[in-house]
Design a binder for these strands. Sequence first.
DNA 1: TATGAATGAGCGTTCATTCAT
DNA 2: TATGAATGAACGCTCATTCAT
Lengths: 183, 183, 183, 183
Amino acid sequence: MDEFIARGFAATRLDDIAKRAGVAKGTIYLHFKDKESMFEELIRTAIVPFVSRLATMPPAMNGSVRDMVEALARMFLKEVAGTRRADLVRLIVAEGPRFPAIADFYYREVVSRGLVAMRGLIELAIARGEIREPKLAQFPQLLIAPMMIAVLWKSLFERHAPLDAEAMLQTHLDLIFGARRPT
Amino acid sequence: MDEFIARGFAATRLDDIAKRAGVAKGTIYLHFKDKESMFEELIRTAIVPFVSRLATMPPAMNGSVRDMVEALARMFLKEVAGTRRADLVRLIVAEGPRFPAIADFYYREVVSRGLVAMRGLIELAIARGEIREPKLAQFPQLLIAPMMIAVLWKSLFERHAPLDAEAMLQTHLDLIFGARRPT
Amino acid sequence: MDEFIARGFAATRLDDIAKRAGVAKGTIYLHFKDKESMFEELIRTAIVPFVSRLATMPPAMNGSVRDMVEALARMFLKEVAGTRRADLVRLIVAEGPRFPAIADFYYREVVSRGLVAMRGLIELAIARGEIREPKLAQFPQLLIAPMMIAVLWKSLFERHAPLDAEAMLQTHLDLIFGARRPT
Amino acid sequence: MDEFIARGFAATRLDDIAKRAGVAKGTIYLHFKDKESMFEELIRTAIVPFVSRLATMPPAMNGSVRDMVEALARMFLKEVAGTRRADLVRLIVAEGPRFPAIADFYYREVVSRGLVAMRGLIELAIARGEIREPKLAQFPQLLIAPMMIAVLWKSLFERHAPLDAEAMLQTHLDLIFGARRPT
DNA sequence: TATGAATGAGCGTTCATTCAT
DNA sequence: TATGAATGAACGCTCATTCAT
């Protein structure tokens, strides 16, 4: 995975993978049909555990929806932005069109599930009056977009202009849920 | 450009480029030092004209800031999302880390300029009272994020779940500028 | 070796080497870093065994120095002049300046050792009164020069004018040691 | 010529030759059929003027033959050893077998003429009693060999072990003509 | 006569894949 | 099941040669 992230699919060498895995190059072919299927399976197995962890997280239904969204977003930033997982996202963006099976899988397992969860939270917030804009439920992408941008930003532009993702998140939440009234 | 978009840098063959360009392989080397510099120059020359067109656009200072932002965003969606330019953006995201020169160039010519322009509009809107959230001026990325997501979405997931980018844009603008009052 | 001798370094094709060696082209790169290092190693491994054979030769200290030198020179003519080894010498002369590592190696392993051995013989001959000219010890090259010329001659001009290297050697030895008195 | 000397035939680029000559690459083909014939003609035209200069030199028949040979040898060392011409000799040795036309030409124009001249001097010296060894007339190569060795030495090993060619020449002449009696 | 852009065959090198052990 | 030497197709790049101007 690290090799594919660092070099992209085409530029990654099976030699390096074998060396890093501590096996002989031929051994790889006992487990994978070829480089392509290895790449696909590796992406899958790298995503699945992260998704399951998210899925089994305690919903913490007691606080406000904003708090729940904030907790999720923070967790996402902490666990993804600026880590190897950010590069994994970038890798999927990069190789997706050439590996439809991967894009399909990623949409099914991550994107659509994430959107469903977000839509649920949005609808709850609307019902509770925390969110005023009812159309938001049709575009849960809007809730997630800044987090995605933060992830890609860290990967591409952090050294040009560091981004305070936490502060941006707060501003974003203020836009969605209305600014917190200072007590 | 089409070849690099379709296959990524590493998997693109100079033979194919030459064939598509209608020249012999050696001819390429009369114009470019090697594959890398060809890639970098192509990205540059593909971006520059688009940026200059944007830069010379009439500012249309008469209407509301929301109208100006909406006009810009619509133009962006029309000219980028779902076109080859979307794949160009994807390509930069994909290859950026391996071509720092390209990421640098893209940040300098496109990202930073775009953010400056957005910040200007946000500050104008705050001054006019169109935007209530003053912190937004610190994160012009929030204004642009949904457009970026729309671009990547079209490239990656359109066939799984079509995205009505125009409608999403309206919802986004409502969040930022406050929902339009039905007249 | 034969390919390099026949064509020189630059004009030799790895395809031909592989074919002659009965392996695939890629196999070469399991043993050598690149064409240059292959060339250098081949020269080395071709020279070393010959030098060691010379080095371990019985000195035959009983006869006259002239007899010893004559035996050595005859052996050299027989084993080098007119054989593939002559072309090896030519190859080193030809490519030496472009492969300093090879020239260095050849000087260290062959030339300097040979000269030391020759100087030893010359000094012995001077001590025994076989050689009258004491300055010769400073220029052992003079002892060897005709042998080198014979080697190059065979390689370049033999078909224009055959050279009787043996007879030339006798004349050379007569100059150095004084003509044999007819008994 | 400088290019061919520096790189050998195969590794020399017509681009470099054209640049150095201050003409366009295509222009070369107005004067030479191809790279090979250019090489051959260039070698020829580089050798001829030097040979003619030697041929028209005043014979200086008044002094001893040793003085005449010494003068010639000194001139040779000065004009060839350690100069570009030394590399020309090396080039001919290197490429000779692959360019029989060049080896032929060189033998005819330089080697055989030089040997004839040397034989003439040797016979004169024998007639005058300056040389005692009559067989030397059959091997004028012996007279020239040390000069050739000096030329190649300078080109290949000078930086390992500088060679005092002048002193070696004196010793060589002492061997041939007998040591000078100290007056 | 001179140009130099264009050609395309050919080369050194890489690397995914195979297979005898 | 594991190895790693061997393969050979394929790639990036070079450069002698051509030819329209």
